[in-house]
Amino acid sequence: MSNTNKLAVNFCGVDFKNPLIPASGAFGYGREFEHFYPLSTLGGISVKGTTGTKRNGNLPPRIAETPSGMLNSVGLQNPGVDHFIKIELPNLKTKDTVIIANIAGSTADEYREIAEKLDKTDVDMIEVNISCPNVKAGGAAFGVTCEGAASITKIVRAATSKPVMMKLSPNVTNIAEIAKAVEAEGADAVSLINTLLGMRIDIKTRRPILHNNVGGLSGPAVFPVAVRMVWQVANAVNIPVCGMGGISRWEDVVEMMMAGAKTIQIGAALFANPMAPVEIIEGLEKYVSDNNLNSLQDIVGTVKPW
């Protein structure tokens, strides 16, 4: 058995060749990264957040660098679910990797409508964004209360038989309670964390750097927060956890898996290092070999708390 197979994971019924998934919003529909490596290298791809109709997104500037991180306020610019199904999905399905549709809505009806449309396609999983900090309606508003998160989970659950993964917001008092609420409504998995709400100000102009004033913080700066939240959630629910937030090296993946994540997503690190997924997979193969593991999954949740 090759080392590559030792990275394999079955995540809520879907087979991934490895646990590495580029995060929604950081990878488009994959086209731009095929210049660097075949998409079949990846365990899966969580595609750009898709809404019911096309969205133009927020005014620029949409990005601000921060110590060990970045803020973004793209605002879900995307061509809409019909375009995704007609143009992007057929292309992605030829790439020999798991395709996760990431969906977002301004209303409960919009989530339902997108999920119903995707249910009729051959997309492998649906990740539900209830945590985008950059849009005024919906998005984060649903993700910051147990009631909101549960209601969207219920609606999407009823609209599709595909595996449903709820993407949780870290901008809450108790993320484990939100995770339990979505589990109770039939979510197959949770992914976390989305970005942390932040702000930067240009002290010369007294203007926020982002035109949206505030935006989502990602990158290594948020990694310890993400590890903590993944650990809390993995201990609170029985459904599998996909961990993300500031991962840039294979060591981060191992740490996140020890905290309780079965799969992981990588986002901001791709910008400085588009080759990060390839380097991380190589690092994980060596780690599995050096530690004589039968499966990388053997380390999931093995943190030994004091």
């Binding site: 950081a26 731009e32 210049h35 133009n56 949409r62 990005i63 973004n72 610019q77 910008f271």
Partner: peptide, 25 residues
């Protein structure tokens, strides 16, 4: 414009343009 990925995936370096008669970022 301030950029993220530089290759067209992250969509942060938006600029206002006219495309097919409509405003498009």
């Amino acid at each position: 414009e301030r950029m993220g990925c530089g290759v067209g995936a992250c969509l942060v370096c938006a600029c206002r343009t006219i495309r097919n008669g409509d405003e498009y970022y």
